[in-house]
Design a protein around this nucleic acid. Sequence first.
DNA 1: ATATACATGTCGAGG
DNA 2: CCTCGACGTGTATAT
Lengths: 221, 221
Amino acid sequence: MRLLVARCEIAYHGRATTSLALGDRVILFKDDGSLCVHADRGYKPLNYMPGPTSVSEDGDVIRVYRAASDETLVIVVHEVLTDERRELVDEAVLEHDGAERQWHLLLERAPEAIEVGLVVLERERFTDTGPIDLFCRDADGRTVVVEVKRTRAVAAHVEQLSRYCERVDRDPAHKPCRGILVAPEIAPQARVMCEARGFGFVELDFGVLKGEVAPELTLFE
Amino acid sequence: MRLLVARCEIAYHGRATTSLALGDRVILFKDDGSLCVHADRGYKPLNYMPGPTSVSEDGDVIRVYRAASDETLVIVVHEVLTDERRELVDEAVLEHDGAERQWHLLLERAPEAIEVGLVVLERERFTDTGPIDLFCRDADGRTVVVEVKRTRAVAAHVEQLSRYCERVDRDPAHKPCRGILVAPEIAPQARVMCEARGFGFVELDFGVLKGEVAPELTLFE
DNA sequence: ATATACATGTCGAGG
DNA sequence: CCTCGACGTGTATAT
């Protein structure tokens, strides 16, 4: 990686157009051709470019071009504060936990967290309107479609659940199915929509669920 | 800004949970409390934290806590390759030429690019279902709702246009309004939806439009 | 390739 | 606050 700290101006042209007046920034040129420009504020880069790119340098002008998307970044360097190259060895991949997929796995092990008597028939059941998170049957033998959200549920998610239920209802064997939205929180409007459409909402916290269902999986204390 | 290059392990716990095994990374600790962790590939950080945070250091363990969202990042430093502090002065703000906004402005100047005889009555007309990009009247005096997309139009965009048209149709003075989707490209399914709902689709390339309508605005070349 | 949904999405505008 | 839509969204996955 090339680590350039410099007082510079930057212009980007591609999907949008940006320009950045003179200032001090840290610029990371990575070995895969990607780069990002950071000032001393905010965690997001001021400018960036995914790899692969071609980087050319002409005096104090660095031009980065990404042919795949016809994007150009031009850096005009006014003063170099640091310019060093470092070999960074990193074979690790980021292990991720708490993604929606994991909710599905946990809920499959503990469907009673959603409702007593619920049985998960299928997880990630694919339909032509999209994948149904949990395809279930309730204590009364009725088909239940469960849509899981790891963040606050909003109107669009209720729409999503509606589509799935409508799709399932096209099969007389399942009609009329029930819909349940599972999330740690729900927006007021989404709650109203749920009630209007007869859907259930179950408030579930991932940390709590994991602790109850699979305490052996709990890392970080 | 503190610029730490180190061989380290990292754990994050907050909205999700991640862990990252030993590897060499560049870590930027910014003065506003935000930080980001970069390996030598990809333009996105492996981990990050928005400011403000409190950073505490205990031996080779750096703990970053963000109270606002109860998120924690723990860095276990195994080997320090570089650890320096730099004063970076940057008063500049990123000038951003929002693409969609430009489309609206250009189309307001040249509605005939969409349809002969079209007149733009209002741009960004706010309704309780969201903002209508271009609220227009056609050559026959009918109300027209135009939804502009700067990328390929997909099904969700047709849904969006539907909602706006339904909203406009609630007013007898405008009913029945027409809907037109404007984009550089449209997905096959979205095209079918447009036809099924009687919406028009106009294929427009921004570069071409800009060249025709406002060549004086063309920068970079 | 096309379509869909997830993301530690983030960000900003309007009500 | 809440809601919604844009983003230089990016990314993964299934058809």
